[in-house]
Design a protein around this nucleic acid. Structure first.
Lengths: 191, 191, 191, 191
DNA sequence: GATGAATGAGCATTCATTCAT
DNA sequence: CATGAATGAATGCTCATTCAT
């Protein structure tokens, strides 16, 4: 069942992603949700708190999309492909939400900023450990794990743009494989 | 000579990068520039225009840092390394400015957003052409030029973070080479 | 039998006296009465009307406490003592109510203000007549009846404070006699 | 010179005394002062702070009006007369201000309330000491100093009403003497 | 040119009141 | 009768911008 709370969250995602946090008026969100302005405050204590909830819920959903934990017997290439494909799916299916999560990282509130930054670091930490592990096992060559993590993170972050802003309708699975290939094998011709 | 206009731009960079566009007050900028609030309006017509000028000037300066046009006889690896190193230099030397350019891309104004997005596409177009050219010449294997461009762009964008937020003091030249190596040769062990 | 209406009045007295008219929320009163917010409106048409009813009922109750009409054969000193003692009783037994009546006379509504002011004038009129009568009969010396009325009214009004705010537990009857003595005989030593 | 700050205080006194704290809008005050809404905030940080300043300044001015400290060789009767006359003057000349100080003691802010209450207690303390002293010296008979203090305070508080609300234009000096006479000698005929 | 006092549009939030259940 | 979710009018406060000096 779609609760009124969900309707507000949905409306918040739409309005925040279109106008950004500061230009989004509570009234806009209320109108988008088809309710009165005051009703929002029955479910959320403030504009900031509504935004935070959207961020948290969005991040939770995103985590699920890119999680590879269930399949622990996976090689590093498969993992990178899974993460990439999951990211693709998420961006394509939750364009507005992904806009909020990956693009409009404005300074809204210091605490929120820190929270979000730490979430990101945490996520990167997992990936970095994975890479370090793969180097140790010989699956990967002796590369700088931190740099590789940044590289992968950057690619994912960048890919959001053409998908959401230009409506790039790439096929997630195969494109994810292409990207994985690039990361794994580089771009020079194999000798 | 440092004109009063430059002082304001400088102050704007500092304040905007610390507080973000919306939390930066014109008065803060005036104080940071050591002048009166009204004086800013002698040189810039509005807060938005001041911000735009900062963006434009910043982007111009950035272009110079990462430009490889002068040395046109360069191989693709050298070019990627030069761009990366230039990016590094820029981020390390203009931390505040780079924060504005690469991080706080809030929805401030639709026109500004479009303008900035187009600048980025333009820059990417140059890189994409370069890659296409290199594929044609056999320097690179048959990869998706667009994906590779996104990849490189993403890496550069991501690298900003640890430098500015965590004070990562990497040696630009050699780190740029490491990154170039990753892009060129991937991360799997060479067979 | 305690009707629901009475419960609301009771709750209103408590909440209004604790928070004042403007800071008292209808919901606070509903909670204090152990009922739903909407139910108040079944018995009172508005917040203001609820307040008015409390004032009216309070004033009626107060009138009874200080009334000396039944015993019309009473001397002026006895009357003053009775009024004072009645006032004492009322303040001690209905602290919250007396706070509303004698202290928080905020400008809530012009009509209410006028109504309350007239009630007061009316009450003072009775006292003033009484004093005038006593002067005529020689019970009192040739004093300004209006001033004496103000004096007595002021003393009663002031006495509320230490009782309610500081929990002054004076014995009503004897204290009322002391006050009467002060009013009657003044404070200079008898020659 | 009448500064803009003073104009705002003046306007605040007028509007607060007419409408009460809660019904007074910042815009009303601005209009009354003939200035823009935002200008008030150049001089006062909030509505509450503006009100506090009015209270403080008013009380300071009141203290001066009723002070008898300079003339320490005064008998108790003269003192009471001076205080009463000062109170009269103040109420007649600063009707609006006195309305705020002596009448609309709404629950606006707990801290403010406490502050005001303490000021009052303090003032009463001085008077009470004075009375106790006069009892010791034999100027007054053995009365309850606290009760007498309440009595005098109550009379003064009450006198405000007819002056401000009904425009009672009594001659301050002589009326103060009448009141003093009542307090000193009571209302019964001298034997 | 330079200034900063003055301005008022704009917005988050509160809460008395309504009404469908 | 009783309820409480929904509402929107009302208002304190911010800050980009103006303009008299």
């Amino acid at each position: 069942m779609v609760t009124k709370r969900d309707m507000i969250l949905e409306a918040g995602i739409k309005v925040f992603s279109q106008k950004g946090y500061h230009h989004a008026k509570m009234e806009d969100i209320a109108v988008a949700a088809g309710i009165g302005k005051g009703t929002i405050y029955e479910y959320f204590s403030s504009k900031l708190q509504l935004f935070q909830e959207i961020m948290e819920a969005g991040l939770r959903q995103y985590q699920e999309s890119v999680s590879t934990e269930k399949i622990s017997q996976m090689g590093i290439a498969e993992r990178i492909q899974k993460i990439t494909a999951g990211h693709f799916y998420f961006c394509q299916n939750y364009k507005e939400l992904s806009r909020i999560l990956f693009w409009d990282t404005d300074i809204i509130d210091d605490e929120l900023k820190d929270w979000f930054y730490n979430k990101r670091k945490e996520k990167e930490g997992v990936l970095e450990d994975l890479i370090r592990e793969s180097i140790r096992s010989g699956e990967l060559r002796e590369v700088d794990a931190k740099l590789v993590t940044l590289m992968i993170g950057g690619i994912l972050g960048q890919i959001w743009m053409p998908i959401v802003l230009e409506g790039w309708e790439a096929e997630a699975e195969s494109t994810a494989w292409q990207i994985t290939d690039l990361i794994m094998n580089g771009i020079v011709p194999s000798t």
